[in-house]
Design a protein around this nucleic acid. Structure first.
Lengths: 120, 120
DNA sequence: TTGATATACAACCATTTGGTTGTATGGTAT
DNA sequence: ATACCATACAACCAAATGGTTGTATATCAA
């Protein structure tokens, strides 16, 4: 009996939302110019409903925001979340950079005993 | 009859791989210190096989690399792909920054006719 | 050689995903 | 008033995901 509690935190949602080419394309388009869901939908070889669902996924991740204007829903990007995602990945990259630094430190010291005191 | 061709390009795979807390944690751990799959598996409240599958997802995305050493598979991070993912997100953020710039240009010019000549 | 350890992999299962069509509803324009 | 958008949403479907258990195989240690 698998539980699947919560269906994930915001970080999960951000990365999941970006893991689809159509959704990434939607983000690029609305970053350049806000537009209605139906205008977006014209661009893709899939039903309006399918695009609606992609927009909903981006909305759940807070990468975009919808605002009703008359009979249309206008989609705008949410730069804060895009920045958050960038910062997240930069964090990972920094972790790697530190590790690479410590490797080259060890190498430049000569022969190594890298494994000695480590534990977690 | 849905086709699902290719099951996605590398970008899809990278973001999908990062859309799971366990997998992100694995990346952090192996970035800090390479280690075997079974060592990783001790950390998580799930079966060895489940962890094996998470590692396989990260491997498909080239975020990590496996190397057999005796009876163990040693997992290392692949900094190139992490860097690629960072660059991807920075690209999105730059797109937004440009747009914000052009908005403030328009605002500082006074009254607008923003929508005039645009098309795609 | 025997046993323990590390991995591989098949089979299975529930849930999620990504798409569809069909129907209802609300705003716009004539 | 009527017709035509744009959207919402339910129901359905196939495939993918994320987990499990069970079994097989290869390596290491005694």
């Amino acid at each position: 009996m698998v539980v699947y509690q919560d269906v994930s935190n915001e970080t999960d949602r951000i990365f999941h939302a970006l893991a689809d080419a159509t959704r990434r394309d939607i983000v690029v388009r609305v970053v350049q110019r806000e537009q209605s869901v139906s205008t977006l939908a014209e661009r893709y070889a899939m039903s309006f409903t399918a695009v609606q669902k992609h927009v909903a996924v981006l909305e759940r991740a807070h990468l975009i925001v919808k605002e009703r204007r008359g009979r249309e829903q206008i989609v705008r990007s949410n730069p804060d979340t895009l920045r958050k995602a960038t910062v997240l990945l930069q964090h990972y990259e920094e972790l790697w950079r530190d590790r690479a630094q410590s490797i080259s430190d060890i190498l430049s010291q000569g022969v190594a005993e890298q494994e000695k005191g480590e534990e977690s």
